[in-house]
């Protein structure tokens, strides 16, 4: 196998004195989706924040392609090709939809050295993002804060795509969405994967995660308690029951 796109090696992440990620490792290949499952407060968002450089791990190593992310500022990590779709969307409420989308392309966001990672299939631009999310095109001049939850989620994904990432960190993109919108999110993730984007997906929606992921991890109290193929998790009744709160029977 070639060099993985992302390699997280035994990271330990803290908030002040509070010890959250206690030795987490994973690898993600180009164009693959890894899903992190786990109950609230187990450290899923902290893992995303560690990779994005927002809460850098105190020990361990994160490597993107062959570049160590240690000591890298969030903006430099983003410019290297990692975009984030944060939990709760966190779109810019007082900016219009258009401004939200164009922000990652502003002069201040352009890296001095171009990336070598972009492949033709990954090239996104304003028009193409609007084609992907027609509901945003209709509200292009509305303020971000005035959008519905579903529209905000699409905007958060569109904003991430505008940076032409190779790896997308998605933190609970289905949270609070209607079943119809969850299906749209699922379709988008599949399309992104088909276009060669890799996704590190955090989800509480087990069905959604299992339906798109190539590899699944279950996190509990800052450590992985399961790693394997989606089919493997569907059969791991004990993990499902103890760490995800679903009984095996409900899964089938």
């Amino acid at each position: 196998m070639s060099v993985p796109l992302l390699r997280v090696a035994d990271i330990h992440t803290y908030y002040g004195d509070s010890y959250v990620l206690q030795g987490v490792s994973l690898t993600l290949q180009k164009g693959q989706i890894a899903a992190i499952l786990g109950r609230n407060g187990m450290g899923k968002t902290t893992l995303i924040r560690s990779v994005a450089g927002l809460t850098p791990p105190r020990a361990g190593e994160i490597t993107y392609r062959d570049m160590s992310l240690r000591g890298k500022q969030p903006y430099a990590i983003a410019q290297a090709g990692i975009s984030i779709v944060p939990q709760g969307r966190r779109i810019f409420r007082s900016l219009s939809v258009r401004e939200n989308l164009l922000l990652p392309t502003s002069v201040l966001a352009r890296s001095s050295k171009g990336r070598n990672g972009d492949e033709p299939g990954q090239r996104w631009d304003f028009d193409e993002v609007l084609k992907e999310f027609p509901q945003l095109a209709e509200r292009i001049n509305h303020l971000g804060g005035s959008l519905s939850g579903g529209e905000q989620q699409m905007l958060a994904i569109g904003r991430a795509l505008m940076a032409n990432p190779e790896l997308i960190l998605m933190d609970e993109p289905s949270e609070g969405l209607s079943p119809r919108l969850v299906l749209q999110v699922q379709a988008i993730m599949r399309r992104l994967r088909a276009r060669g984007h890799a996704i590190l997906l955090v989800e509480q929606n087990l069905e959604l995660a299992l339906s798109v992921a190539d590899e699944v991890y279950v996190i509990s109290a800052g450590q992985f308690v399961f790693q394997g193929a989606p089919a493997g998790l569907a059969n791991a009744a004990q993990v499902l029951d103890q760490h995800l709160g679903v009984s095996g029977a409900k899964m089938v």
Partner: peptide, 27 residues
């Protein structure tokens, strides 16, 4: 202007401004 939009975005949520690739210190 786009620079202005970046500043307004920074007023909204500084952390995400840096996470989408903007060097907030320069701003």
């Amino acid at each position: 202007t786009q620079i202005g939009a970046v500043v307004r975005a920074g007023v909204d949520d500084r952390e995400i401004v840096s996470a989408i690739g903007i060097n907030i210190d320069r701003l």
